[in-house]
């Protein structure tokens, strides 16, 4: 027995509304968004907070879909593209939190991108978004290069992130966006 009671209690204590672990694909995204909306309906969360939570969840899920790497995790034999995503709340805010495997090679670039976003004021984030939007083209992974900028804009709080090195080549990227109630 692995102790599922412990798992559910831990989730309750952390205010988890939705937790998913596994591969993120378009079908899963659609289902998770529906589940999240049902939860927000049940909690009678409406207006701007609801829009911001939903919007950030969309961008986070699409980030996972486009950017999570298929890696052989040290200690496992089979390659995995599993990610984790959770929506939770406390008295103060909602949190959209994700985790996914990344190649260590992208860590430096991603850190620079996130730290730049965090250094900008609200108005500067808005200008930065406009600048990137008018750049023609999409990234190699099919993204617009706008996801984290938009998350920061909707969150209005510093983006929290952390990298856990698993080997020379592979790391785990943890990310959290806060939406104040």
């Amino acid at each position: 027995m692995s102790g599922t009671y412990h798992t559910i209690k831990k989730m309750e204590n952390e205010g988890a509304l939705l937790v998913y672990s596994g591969e993120v694909n378009p079908d899963i995204i659609s289902r998770l968004l529906q589940l999240a909306e049902d939860k927000l309906d049940a909690l009678e969360i409406t207006g701007g907070v609801r829009k911001r939570v939903f919007h950030i969840l969309v961008e986070c899920l699409q980030n996972l879909y486009h950017h999570a790497e298929t890696v052989v995790v040290p200690g496992n034999n089979l390659p995995s593209r599993d990610s984790v995503v959770q929506l939770r709340r406390d008295d103060e805010a909602f949190y959209v939190e994700t985790g996914n495997y990344l190649l260590t090679a992208v860590k430096e670039k991603l850190t620079a991108h996130l730290s730049k976003i965090n250094s900008l004021s609200k108005e500067q984030v808005r200008e930065y978004y406009k600048n990137i939007m008018t750049d023609n083209g999409f990234t190699a992974k099919g993204g617009a290069g706008l996801g984290f900028i938009d998350i920061a804009r909707k969150s209005e709080e510093p983006l929290q992130y952390n990298f856990i090195d698993l080997s020379n080549d592979v790391c785990f990227f943890e990310f959290s966006a806060k939406i104040k109630i």
Binding site: H55, E59, Q62, M133, F138, G142, G143, A144, L146, D150
Partner: peptide, 12 residues
């Protein structure tokens, strides 16, 4: 009502 960031480029 909502649009994602990659839609924003196409709307432009």
């Amino acid at each position: 009502e909502y649009f994602n960031t990659s839609s924003s480029k196409f709307i432009l």
